[in-house]
Design a protein around this nucleic acid. Sequence first.
RNA 1: UGGGGCGUCGCCAAGCGGCUAGGCACCUGGUUUUGAUCCAGGCAUACGUAGGUUCGAAUCCUACCGCCCCAGCCA
Length: 562
Amino acid sequence: MSKNEHAVPTHFIRQIIERDLAADKNGGRVHTRFPPEPNGYLHIGHAKSICLNFGLARDYPGGVCNLRFDDTNPHKENEDYVNAIKHDVRWLGFDWEDRLFYASDYFEKLYGFAVELIQAGKAYVCDLTPEQIREYRGTLTEPGRESPYRNRSVEENLELFKRIRAGEFEDGSRVLRARIDMASPNMNMRDPTLYRIRHGVIHHQTGEEWCIYPMYDFTHPISDALEGITHSLCTLEFEDHRPLYDWVLDNISIDCHPQQIEFSRLNLEYTVMSKRKLTQLVDEGVTSGWDDPRMPTIAGLRRRGYTPASIRTFCDRVGVTKSANSVEMGMLEACIREDLDQNARRALAVLDPLKVVIENYPGEQVEMLDAPYHPKDGEMGSRQIPFTRELYIDRADFREEANRKYKRLVSGGEVRLRNAYVIKCENVIKDEQGEILELRCSYDPATLGANPEGRKVRGVIHWASASRGVKAEVRIYDRLFQHPAPDADKSVESFLAHLNPDSLHVVQAIVEPSLTSAVEGDRFQFEREGYFCVDPESRPEHLVFNRTVTLRDSWAKIEKQS
RNA sequence: UGGGGCGUCGCCAAGCGGCUAGGCACCUGGUUUUGAUCCAGGCAUACGUAGGUUCGAAUCCUACCGCCCCAGCCA
């Protein structure tokens, strides 16, 4: 944990836990779990859940948190997702130690509890088709009707369930259902399905051992109880499932009854958070993969340059409540800026190069200028930057003429080159179309590490040596969508209609040579531009940087006003 | 027109009957060889609405309004 992270504010779940602790409810234990289904990559919403569950375990004496894969639907799951999820949780900074579990570990026990339910007359084998089950379920305003198979004898149910497990029946032909209340105002209590038949799928953990798979509503409470979970935290859409969670545990012989508590999921503006939609973005090639730096996945944020600490800080700041929310991107960006401002080395990189020739600087001369890695943290040391007769500056840092507000280089004007000399623009060379080709400048040798005498130079711009600088590919990312809530807009056929066509720009930059040794994962502030990280595809002979986030830019605001 | 939730500043969010925490964003100034950072200051006398209880209500009560979730053999 970094120094930036301090005591987090309380929230309603902590209050519940503290009340339980005070009442010695679970023998003083706090035991949570993070239970992802391995059917996709984790996203920032999962990060909130991870920080919550593992954070609680960390903050209470003796607290522990399990990692459990909710792998009851083999159709959509695979081992690659399991590995990616483990990697992401660890990367975020959390440790499940020896508590790695799979719901599939409990298939045999689960089967036993299902038999118990049948023996108690609380579950039955139903032969209705999926369509019929839906019809019999009724609607939100009308009660359902009881299945004609609802009153089968215990013996018949037991026999049938055994034969189902033995593989005698086809997919979809029968299910095991809980026998609760077809007239319940809560849809989840209208004899929910407990088991379905699935032949021919190879489960990533259990292979072909089973042809029946338990449903979430049956599996989850039992898995929690088997692991001795005290507080089972999930998102709001499961609120209606809580009566069923409790019903399952109340009707089987198990001596642990965790408390399910629901909180609202995280929503971020200008992106989507549902696994279905993220999968679609990947499958349709809209993004380069789950780790595309524009994705709100942990892998995407990592590749974008976000640090684990910045994501943890973000999760702490958004808090835990039951109210619907849509958090601004600015909140996330502030967290990474805060981290990187303090911890990232500075470097000079020119993203849109314009050649500058210093006419009074000797052609063959190369001066190595010392430049601190950080303006405030001297302990980070410094590097040498070559200064030569031909340089590059950014096109945006020169204007032939401009008003007083513009503090950069203008014709006949002076500007400070960062960590180097003050230069003056003597001449502007253009082509026939009037396009500026290069600038002819002079430098003042007396201005290295010193202010010029008798005049004030207001601007400072970054630069790179033309001969010693290094080419680099820089990927400039913007938000993936143009709409703050792409999946909430019902007026379009698909959320894809809101894709931002300009979410990625690739530019060829000239960067200072010290960056040649940068390796995957290194993060820098390119001064006056933003924070950048080295992409996994980067090689010493072909550097690739991703822009994590821009710097705050008050100049852009000033310019916008005029 | 069933059930379950939620409504405090542009966005998050504290608050749990006694002067509306805080963060992000935004606005002013100052410092600055990054128009960054940093520092100082500003930013809710209608807490969804209307009634009520109370000396006192965002907090308690009543009614209403708005938004979200639920009719998978998904999780």
